[in-house]
Nucleic acid binder design. Structure first.
Lengths: 112, 112
DNA sequence: ATTTATTGACGCAAATATACGTCATAAATT
DNA sequence: AATTTATGACGTATATTTGCGTCAATAAAT
């Protein structure tokens, strides 16, 4: 998604890696978890929930927004952030498709 | 897993984020995929499969090894790398536990 | 109209990740 | 024994991520 060499890999691996990357920081997991529970909330509320400054949380929100997992709706001077259900479902599919592809057989063992 | 602030989050989020991070680069996904198909192989073989130098691939292998997803067995002058089935299963559980936790209800919609 | 919130954009410093080349080491080959 | 192979450790340059403070802009409240 970011480094030059990344583009030399198969498209499906790039896409999967992109989602994994979006989930690679606990702050972003915490945000998704919080949005799941509250369904709708404003960004300010979220930074109160996390041990990070408002600007840093905002940056994580931006990242999640850019990959499409959440969406922000402007409401007066506030912004309501919530999960993008369709995108989340798509992500789950992509992630499962990958993790399923590394399924090992019952009798597997490391033969050295 | 890496940044100082990461440790301020719940343990389960840290663990999940650690696995997601391990999967956040297509080279590592390609390695896992390749190991799944060949079951056992040497590191040199893998770098031939990827558009990266041997040392870079070695570094990705090291990362996967450190988190436990793969293991390397020294065999003479060669090293046989293969998947650590138990750890992979554990990872899948952790990842699923998280993704399941962001399951949204049928009637969900962004209320602004 | 003037403050007071609420946000996002911008820039900066420090920490990490990525990608490689070079070396050293040990095994296999000649 | 000398050479070739195979690997990992180490160092380095560059790119990206984190984390945060400051500012500007807009909305809300006084």
């Amino acid at each position: 998604m970011t480094y030059a060499k990344v583009e030399l890999f198969d498209q499906d691996l790039q896409v999967a890696a992109g989602y994994f990357k979006a989930l690679s920081h606990p702050a972003r997991l915490a945000i998704l978890k919080y949005l799941t529970e509250s369904r709708v909330c404003i960004s300010g509320d979220i930074s109160n929930e996390l041990p990070l400054s408002r600007t840093t949380v905002n940056q994580h929100l931006k990242e999640l927004k850019e990959i499409g997992l959440i969406q922000g709706t402007i409401n007066g001077s506030k912004t309501n952030y919530c999960l993008n259900k369709a995108k989340i479902e798509e992500m789950k599919q992509v992630l499962n498709r990958f993790t399923d592809s590394v399924q090992l057989p019952e009798d597997f063992s490391c033969k050295s």
